[in-house]
Amino acid sequence: MDDLSHYSVIERLRDGRTLEIRALLPGDRVGVLAAIDHSSAQSLYRRLFLGRSAASPTRRLCSCLRWTSLTT
């Protein structure tokens, strides 16, 4: 099985633009956490099956991504 931590593929959208689909990297943490903080409860549920009423959706997601710290 290939190492998925280095996965990357470029896809072309219908309108001609390109999009890179790749594995998350440690440097993505700040952006991912910012996106979670600015997402509505409905968006979190639809995209990640996490609700704002959960103990800490950000901590749960970091655990799933194996990011042990929220700040580094």
Rank of each mutant, 00 (worst) to 15 (best):
W67P: 01
S5V: 04
A35P: 00
V30E: 15
R14I: 03
D3V: 07
S43H: 07
V30R: 15
R52Y: 02
A35Y: 11
S56W: 03
R46M: 10
V32M: 10
S43N: 02
D15T: 03
D2G: 12
L25M: 11
S53G: 03
S8H: 13
R59Q: 14
L50I: 03
F49Q: 14
E11M: 12
H6D: 14
L33E: 07
C62G: 08
A54E: 14
R14W: 09
R17D: 04
R22A: 09
W67K: 05
L24Q: 06
I10R: 15
I21N: 04
R14A: 12
T71N: 09
R59M: 08
S5L: 06
I10Q: 15
L48V: 00
C64T: 03
E11C: 09
I36F: 08
L48Q: 01
S56G: 06
L48I: 00
R22G: 07
Q42D: 14
S63T: 15
R52C: 03
R17Y: 08
F49W: 10
D3L: 09
A41Y: 03
A34Q: 07
G51H: 12
S69N: 07
L44Y: 05
G27N: 11
R52E: 05
R59N: 07
H38P: 00
I10F: 13
F49V: 13
T18V: 11
L24V: 14
L65I: 01
E11L: 13
S39M: 12
R14C: 03
R46H: 11
F49K: 15
C62Q: 04
G16N: 01
D2Q: 12
G16E: 03
D28A: 02
I10E: 15
E20Y: 04
W67Q: 07
D2S: 14
A23Y: 05
L33T: 05
E20V: 11
A41C: 11
L4M: 14
R52H: 11
R22P: 02
L48F: 15
T58R: 12
L50Y: 14
Y45G: 02
S39Y: 08
G27F: 05
L65Q: 03
T71A: 10
Y45D: 08
R66P: 00
S53R: 13
A35C: 06
S56M: 01
R66I: 02
I10S: 15
R60P: 00
R46Y: 06
I10V: 11
C62M: 10
R47S: 10
T71H: 11
T58H: 05
I36N: 00
D28F: 04
T68Q: 10
T18A: 11
Y7Q: 05
P57A: 15
E20I: 07
A54N: 06
T58N: 00
S69A: 07
R22V: 07
L19G: 01
L50E: 05
L70R: 10
I21A: 04
D37K: 13
S53Q: 12
L65V: 02
G31A: 07
R52L: 07
L70H: 04
H6C: 08
T58L: 05
V9L: 01
Y45Q: 09
S69P: 00
L70V: 00
L48H: 10
A55E: 12
A34H: 11
R46K: 11
Q42N: 10
R59H: 13
E11A: 15
I36M: 13
E20P: 00
A35T: 10
T58D: 09
R66E: 13
Y7P: 01
Y7W: 10
E20T: 14
C62P: 04
L50D: 01
G51P: 01
Y45W: 05
G31V: 04
T71K: 10
E20M: 09
P57L: 09
